[in-house]
Design a protein around this nucleic acid. Structure first.
Lengths: 337, 337
DNA sequence: TTGAAAGCGCTACCAG
DNA sequence: CTGGTAGCGCTTTCAA
């Protein structure tokens, strides 16, 4: 196994200068058809591929986007990885994965992102450090927060962009639907207390309930975690509870709740109790659940993320917050009209 | 936003040579404690991070591992991404994601992997081109095939390593359990016909059935796809079918099958019909399914992958095939003993 | 242990 | 349009 051919090798074989080789592989450079042909032929013969690292060193663009996530337990995120990778690939970028379990790791992650000279950063997952995004932004690296809101009033000098769905409106939809279907004692299962998604969904939910002259009957916290959501559900429906509906801050917890409601508590969903989730993960549509939920449209969200990243990587420094509409998906965990 | 500090800037501030800075950030280089302190202090003050790209250019190691996958529909793979990223991160490597939808894209993917100078490649997902792995191997890039077997008798000059679970043994376990529980007319729901996983599971399954004096009653192909698996299940249990058990080549299809069996066909699983899957994805444990399945141990598989990659990236050229044992996980889709 | 100098493979700027 | 030349930021000889 000999080492990979360099531009100079191709140049030698094609009897042109090394510069000519470089131009041939630089879209929009001025090369004659003649030269380009010779270079391409030689490159083909040698199996030459430009070294992206060397190129990045000089162009100062790595074409790498760092995707920072934490646990992938919530099935919404694999979808995001897939769509985002694809979309970015089609634009000539690639996704470098960073799994940051805890806030502690944030500094280390930042260091690595910087070392790899990522052109941009996408921060997904609610569990991540608030400061990491700001640090990147301060260093002039385009950051978009996916499915979470920029830190309002934080210390960051440069704002970060964000893409979220309309969580507030989604929360309202859930409340309105539940009320319309005659549910009256409605509980809320919160995600992470300090996540913008959970807070906004709850705010919309509460506001819509208030508008109907109601308030949340009971509230527990599941921290977007399956087991904690199960435990929270048990508390929610503990003996003496008269809840007749539940809105969970995401599908992952809604599914955990449904398992407990049906299989432990022997509740009849949707007749005894109604349930609405948030996200519309693929599993929500499965026959075992058929969960009524508020859908977050992954594809528009990913498109917006890539668009935001692009404009910032190409010099538009102004940060923007994009809000994508949600969509109610009615299945079988609430009574039909 | 000024541009990032370079080693020379640190050197100037610390009043040492640029070489000294380099050594300070090179583990195991000889620097006096005195110098190291000065350099670190200066680096700290400037917020200096070595440029990994420039380093890679000269060391010829990018510390990047390409992870090539296709659809992430099967929930086994997100787990793999998560564990592999983590493990590789802890060893100083990072995962660059490549989503290759179809075989056609394989060449393009190869080119990109080469351009980014990936130190190694992990190919997961059965749908991927057989030739891609061989091409990388031929170019001297360590490749490990994850959850699929090296191409036997292919054209590749250099063999590729692989990590799989013991699919044959797993298939046997499924058959033996079904037989032991008194099921007699057993069907098989195949994955991709040309995938080693599906073939091996089926072979083990058939062999064990034969040993019990039985054969597969019916067989359909679901191509590891949810909707196709649903359709295949309908065919399997079409009027006139007398199947009393089904073994699906993975959980993803088993869940699709279970949905059809219970909710469309109103079959009583496990009393009328038994069902076993393969993988033990998180969803298999959910209350709506409680699927009996053959577990693939992700963590040992990932550990083996990283170990294989490591040894090959550090000069051990010999390819190896690692087989990780499976584990039967009994839940509620077959009759209890 | 240290600093000077020579590149890694490429792009970008020249003059021609 | 072309070929020379000067680096990108770093590691790595090599003398000192």
């Amino acid at each position: 196994m000999k080492s990979a051919p360099r531009a100079q090798d191709v140049a030698d074989l094609a009897m042109v200068s090394q510069s000519a080789v470089s131009r041939t592989f630089t879209p929009g450079a001025s090369v004659s058809e003649e030269t380009r042909r010779k270079v391409l032929a030689a490159a083909q013969k040698l199996g030459y591929r430009p070294n992206a690292l060397a190129r990045s060193l000089i162009t100062r663009r790595s074409h790498i986007v760092a995707l920072v996530m934490s646990y992938l337990e919530n099935q919404f995120y694999p979808l995001v990885i897939e769509k985002l990778s694809q979309k970015l690939q089609s634009e000539g970028y690639h996704v470098l994965m960073f799994i940051a379990e805890i806030d502690e790791a944030a500094d280390g992650v930042l260091a690595e992102i910087l070392q790899y000279q990522a052109d941009g950063v996408v921060m997904a997952s609610a569990r991540l450090s608030r400061t990491l995004a700001g640090s990147c932004a301060d260093l002039g690296i385009p950051v978009v927060q996916f499915n979470r809101i920029s830190d309002i009033g934080g210390l960051a000098r440069h704002a970060t962009s964000s893409v979220t769905s309309d969580n507030y409106a989604g929360g309202r939809m859930a409340a309105e639907l539940l009320v319309a279907r005659g549910y009256r004692r409605i509980g809320f299962l919160a995600g992470l207390e300090d996540s913008s998604t959970s807070r906004e969904r709850e705010r919309g939910f509460n506001d819509a309930l208030a508008q109907a002259g109601m308030t949340v009957a009971r509230r527990e916290v599941g921290q977007y975690n399956f087991d904690l959501a199960r435990a929270a559900t048990r508390r929610l429906f503990a003996p003496g509870s008269d809840l007749d509906a539940l809105f969970a801050a995401n599908d992952h917890m809604a599914i955990a709740a449904l398992d407990v409601m049906r299989h432990e508590l022997a509740l009849d969903v949707p007749n005894d109790v109604g349930l609405i989730g948030f996200d519309d993960v693929p599993q929500a549509a499965w026959g075992g659940y058929r969960l009524t939920t508020v859908r977050q449209e992954v594809e528009p969200m990913v498109d917006a993320t890539v668009a935001l990243l692009s404009e910032q990587m190409h010099g538009v420094l102004r940060a923007r917050d994009v809000v994508v509409p949600c969509l109610l998906v009615e299945r079988d965990t609430i009574r039909h009209a």
